[in-house]
Design a protein around this nucleic acid. Structure first.
Lengths: 234, 234
DNA sequence: CGGGCGGTTGATAGAACTCAAGGCGTGTGG
DNA sequence: CCACACGCCTTGAGTTCTATCAACCGCCCG
């Protein structure tokens, strides 16, 4: 982790599509001046489960994985956060300790914005309040889906779903490969299964001609079939 | 479902511990006058997954189960809501359709408060905003734990955890039994497993002398051991 | 060149699901 | 008042799914 100079939030394109889109230029200025930005290398921890946070975070660049360490010591990845995403706000708003650990997956520049600023904005800018709530509520909806999926879908079905989600979140490159490279272990921690089980599902999907892999890269070859499996209809 | 006369929110003791605790008497008055209250019988549906809601709900009396219907048609209960709990706000705030179905478990009086009022309050009362966010963020934290638990704990461990949670949420009666009676099916839908598997876990806990059951009533006989199992340390 | 990490496969054991059958208790209709 | 049906609970047996352990490969890096 290395401190880097503050960038201007006004110039950040990512803000147009997140909770900061409702802020005035003055409010953005205030954040730009008071935030603190750091460069994190792959593998570095931003905060640990159980820490109390003094602010929330916004990703200017890179990818961060957010996970819980379960009772058996295994990791369960809750979310991959990318450019423009904010995280850590949950603990700040609920005034609880962090329920997750956040670790950098691809070298990242992350800005920390203090709790004071967050609460000030909520007090003074109802539109911002609403967009924060909207965000929390959307994440809650996703979490609820996650719960039903984990309880009811097989590993293969969840694997198919993961691949589709990765495509939606990270797009595809010029060769048709999904725009993020994760280790098999990371992916199994998202799916919520053992690495070997995850690999077996991948292998099956490959043998069925539905996907193709090249090292860490994954390409979807038959999206309709993949969707069908992901829906648990197979 | 039968319409019943509006009660005064000011007199509702449950409000002291929920998001309404930060409202002024005028604001409460406004809700009392404009809300609409209904009596629901066991088994009645308040709203279905996919519906768009015109307001959120507060339970004056009774118990409501909130569940998702999974891809295989099985139910996954996300939460049991009781007196003083609010629900449906997620869909209103995220402007999405309801991600769950809500069904009455014990005859209930439920008040519906229109979206307008909710948004007006958020605009005019920052303290209320903050407590709404706090609620959403707390639920998000719980959902995240649920995810890690489902992925990593065995059915027996989750069964132990359910019993502890029911005790915390619904207390115990004069004979030491937990103050809520659910069918085995309902409980299995919370734990996220087949009814038979859930029953087998219950039976094991009984055989080990950790719990005792009498019809639908459950009594905890060895709480430390139950906690130990629930933590997944067995 | 050796070591370690990530990926893969096989074998096996254990967990959980499904299907099937039977018991118990309650409420209803004859 | 009894018989029966129905819902809920429980247990058994068999099957499927998933985790775990072990081994091996390929590759990159020091």
């Amino acid at each position: 982790m290395k401190k880097v100079g503050n960038t201007y939030c006004q110039n950040c394109k990512a803000r147009l599509s997140n909770v900061f889109s409702n802020l005035t230029l003055e409010e953005l200025d205030n954040i730009s001046i008071n935030k603190s930005c750091h460069l994190y290398k792959k593998g570095e921890i931003i905060y640990n489960q159980g820490n109390y946070l003094h602010g929330f975070y916004c990703i200017e660049q890179g990818i961060v994985k957010i996970y819980k360490i379960g009772p058996k010591g295994r990791k369960q990845i809750i979310k991959l956060a990318k450019k423009g995403d904010i995280f850590g706000y949950r603990s700040v708003l609920s005034k609880e300790s962090a329920c997750t650990t956040t670790e950098v997956l691809e070298d990242a520049i992350v800005c920390q914005i203090s709790s004071n600023i967050l609460f000030d904005l909520i007090y003074s800018n109802p539109k911002f309040s609403i967009s924060m709530m909207k965000l929390a509520c959307e994440e809650l909806g996703e979490a609820n889906s996650y719960i039903a999926n984990l309880a009811q879908k097989s590993v293969k079905e969840r694997t198919a779903e993961l691949i589709l989600n990765l495509k939606n979140d990270f797009g595809i490159d010029e060769n048709g490969y999904i725009g993020i490279s994760l280790t098999r272990e990371d992916m199994s921690e998202i799916v919520g299964t053992a690495t070997e089980s995850f690999i077996r599902s991948l292998t099956e999907l490959k043998n069925e001609g539905i996907i193709e892999t090249k090292g860490k890269k994954i390409k979807i070859k038959d999206e309709p079939k993949l969707i069908h499996i992901a829906k648990g209809l197979e």
